[in-house]
């Protein structure tokens, strides 16, 4: 057995197989959703004593047609995309500067603010709904994109700020000091040196904000619901008082995960480029 061959067998057992198992665990319920979504209503149901069906007898795309034709799911996708994108951009820009400040400066009140950011995250949001709804009503922005963008961008601030402060802290200060000696001002040092190096962390945080906004239900249901209707609200409508539109619901969930997965496929390369790029520059 040649070295190459042995090596590839070793890789099969120490890399490919374990990754496959983890991936299957991650997508198992998703696959189950997909199988349900291509079955006719009640198609997966089996009588007592029969074996569970792992594939519908007559697969159909009918539920997907219903989803786009009769429920206007495309509009829900657009709404979710708009809200999640702007929440991510807005949230990132708010917390980028804040965490740069926490990471690179020592100033009075710094610890207090960091702690405050942590503690405000500890309160169950359901108890904040009434005052929040009232505030948004006063601002006249209920049932708009802005309400959700604002809510998601701010509610993820504590998380994003702390997380990015950690990522920034992992970057040697000598790098931005060097840049300042070379004639950059402090803002330029942040933009040109720290941000490029911290890109994996920023991307990871951005993903966090995006996904949070993509999935969030409680705010979306209370603060919007008429002209703006994100995916979780649309999906929740399929869960009725006496009935669950199960095939439709699973079709909706299969579709709703796709944009994020595709987006991430292109973005994930960014998760590795930062440090190498930074190292070259320094």
């Amino acid at each position: 057995m040649g070295y190459e061959e042995r090596n590839s067998i070793k890789r099969l057992f120490t890399l490919h197989l374990p990754v496959l198992v983890i991936t299957l665990f991650a997508i198992g319920p998703y696959i189950w959703s997909f199988i349900t979504s291509i079955s006719p209503p009640g198609g997966m149901r089996v009588q007592a004593g029969e074996a569970i069906r792992y594939f519908p007898e007559s697969p159909t795309i009918f539920n997907y047609v219903r989803l786009f034709d009769r429920i206007n799911f495309l509009q829900n996708l657009v709404d979710s995309m708009v809200v999640a994108t702007f929440a991510m951009l807005f949230g990132l820009s708010l917390s980028l500067t804040a965490s740069f400040s926490f990471s690179r400066f020592r100033f009075p009140g710094r610890k207090y603010f960091m702690l405050q950011f942590l503690v405000i995250n500890m309160f169950p949001v359901v108890l904040l709904l009434i005052p929040l709804f009232w505030i948004m009503g006063r601002m006249g922005i209920t049932d708009t994109y802005l309400a959700l963008v604002l809510a998601y961008a701010t509610f993820t601030i504590p998380f994003s700020t702390w997380m990015m402060t950690s990522f920034f802290n992992a970057i040697p200060k000598s790098l931005d000091e060097q840049a300042q000696i070379d004639g950059c001002n402090r803002f330029q040092a942040m933009i040109r040196i720290v941000i490029p190096i911290a890109m994996p962390g920023i991307v990871a945080t951005g993903i966090y904000i995006f996904i949070t906004a993509w999935n969030e239900f409680v705010f979306a249901s209370v603060l919007t619901g008429r002209s703006v209707q994100t995916i979780p609200v649309a999906l929740q409508r399929m869960v009725g008082q006496h009935e669950i539109a199960w095939e439709l619901l699973t079709a909706g969930s299969v579709v709703s995960a796709l944009p994020v997965i595709i987006l991430f496929f292109f973005i994930q390369k960014r998760l590795i480029s930062g440090m190498t790029a930074g190292a070259i520059k320094s």
Binding site: P29, Y30, N215, I261
Partner: peptide, 8 residues
């Protein structure tokens, strides 16, 4: 592996 996280 992101799928569980993006599922509502």
């Amino acid at each position: 592996i992101l799928i569980p996280w993006v599922t509502p």
